[in-house]
Write a protein that binds this DNA or RNA. Structure first.
Lengths: 340, 340
DNA sequence: TTGAAAGCGCTAACAT
DNA sequence: ATGTTAGCGCTTTCAA
């Protein structure tokens, strides 16, 4: 706000009108004559008048701003989701405040506390992997803040949740591995408190059950932070005598470690270990070997979340129901699970 | 702002105080007794009082908000830069409004027009690849809006620019290719109107000159939009009899196409073509072959840009000088340029 | 068709 | 140490 901005008052003086008249003219009110409107518009244009959004917000109790709260942005799913969110928002005249939790519930709580100020008209949320308690979310939700979840949801909050078919995707991933001959399927988790993580895992497990390899199913909980730690955890897992011969990675960031460790240990992919990962990276097809992926409809999920949120903000008739909107993911088979 | 938020007035009534007293108490003013402060704080806490930021903005002509305007977020450089920007901003109590230009100058202009409203206290900008004119930027800048560029700068605007050593990086990349035996080095551009692109290209060219392979230097302008188009352009280039035997890709998104085309045409990397790309992707080391990269200090550039901008907002003594702050990139040699 | 005045929530003079 | 008042820029009754 360093801009020495022109105000309605100044416009009014320039035009020899009242501020009220100018305000109405700018909003194209029917109670202002066409001639006056023209005059006002012309001068406004000339003086480069842009209304002060905060004055308007104060009056209207609407900020035309939404908050996007998510764990991080250096993940292709979230990047693409933001693209979808922003596209819709800008088109509808909304501004996007970005908040990153960096997977920390403390940061998430601090952000939610701030959002109680009324800085935004609604919130798009994908919770941190540390988030187990939900008081901070409920507290804001109970103040009638519209909240729409995408991807990482909270079942307990009764609102719209945009997800992909996590359970089925997990199931399909594991089933694919089993059909490729895997007997010992491992699911690499990012967090045990995330619904989507657990659904994917349960899908895997069920596939193993249905195909009689349940006792081969294992589950490795990795960290969402330090890659060092994960490297060691994965390596230890792959050194076990009954190491997995098939891996489902719940997030794309695990794949680099998996590949490097297999290389270090002399395990061939897919010969010795087959790998599927949830990922939206464009470069998966040029990995060594090309990576079989579950690709989430990231952009579309962002778009849908954004448009539902904004609709609920603008139409009081459109309340946010407790509802799951599911957009399916796609399994794309590549060399990391077949061939060679 | 759907939150039925509590106001200072209501606090004051609850406490039997004036709004002014409450306001001062909340800001820990010395002219309020300790006892009263305690009382106020207690009630504020109890009633979950959070000040209305827009009322404050209106009074102070400060929004504690910065805008980040950049081409896209689905690029690891920008993702990491946002991380850096957001970290610093949140720590200093600033909010981040995210705007994506999607490489369109029209969108960029529309955003800048809006920013004249005083919605933000400062702007971090990485221009679109279409941006040739700069009137929209100058116009805002002349209104005393602090603007700091990062990565994709505008020389003409006299302010701080955070970049990496683009020229040297281009030089190093090409020199590395030449030392690996390349005779025909091509630079794949994302835009001819971006300084950073041209500096990288000029660096390449100079390296070719210095090593007597100037006549082998070529330059291919690709699109920042449709990947289809790029695929065909690159393919045509690689089908030429005097096709390059070394490629410097100015942005990471070109690498997938390059790899796929070489595969399609039966060109081995690095045997027939060596590839270096500017990239911050974590997965470059597991590509087939692992990709030699120029890695930009993305996070650090974001951090620095953010902290300089905020400093200039807060300290009137700290004016933004016309200055280049350069953080060097790193060349990491991998299999796409050597071996096999 | 236009204008005067009040008020959104907050703070900074200026009283008291 | 606390209260009164005016005003940030805008919109919206209500009056003219």
């Amino acid at each position: 706000m360093a801009t020495g901005n022109i105000t309605i008052k100044e416009l009014a003086k320039e035009l020899n009108l009242s501020t009220a008249a100018v305000s109405k003219a700018l909003r194209d009110s029917h109670e202002i004559s066409a001639a006056t409107k023209e005059r006002v518009m012309a001068v406004a244009e000339k003086l480069n008048y842009v209304p002060n959004p905060y004055a308007g917000s104060l009056r209207h109790r609407k900020s035309k701003t939404i908050a996007v709260v998510l764990p991080e942005v250096a993940d292709s799913f979230f990047s693409l989701a933001i693209n979808g969110i922003e596209s819709v928002a800008i088109e509808k005249g909304y501004h996007v405040l970005l908040y990153l939790t960096h997977e920390s519930i403390l940061k998430e709580e601090a952000i939610f506390k701030d959002l109680a100020s009324g800085r935004v008209d609604g919130v798009l949320l994908s919770i941190s992997s540390e988030t187990d308690g939900i008081d901070h979310i409920r507290s804001l939700f109970n103040r009638n803040m519209p909240i729409v979840f995408f991807d990482r949801t909270c079942e307990e909050i009764e609102t719209v949740k945009i997800t992909t078919n996590d359970y089925e995707s997990g199931y399909k991933a594991a089933e694919h591995l089993i059909k490729c001959g895997c007997k010992r399927v491992a699911f690499f988790s990012i967090s045990n408190s995330l619904q989507i993580n657990n659904k994917r895992r349960q899908g895997c497990l069920q596939a193993c059950r249905d195909h009689d390899v349940e006792e081969g199913f294992s589950h490795l909980l990795l960290s969402n932070r330090a890659s060092e730690v994960n490297y060691q955890l994965i390596k230890a897992e792959m050194l076990k005598p009954d190491r997995p011969d098939g891996i489902v990675a719940s997030v794309e960031k695990f794949t680099t470690d998996i590949y490097l460790i297999c290389r270090e240990l002399g395990l061939g992919i897919p010969a010795d270990v087959k790998v599927v990962s949830f990922s939206n990276l464009a470069s998966v097809s040029i990995l060594d070997p090309a990576l079989t992926t579950i690709t989430q409809p990231a952009f579309e999920m962002g778009e849908l979340a954004s448009s539902i949120l904004i609709k609920s903000i603008e139409l009081k008739s459109f309340a946010l129901k407790n509802e799951n909107r599911v957009i399916p993911s796609t399994l794309t088979v590549r060399a990391s699970t077949v061939g060679k």
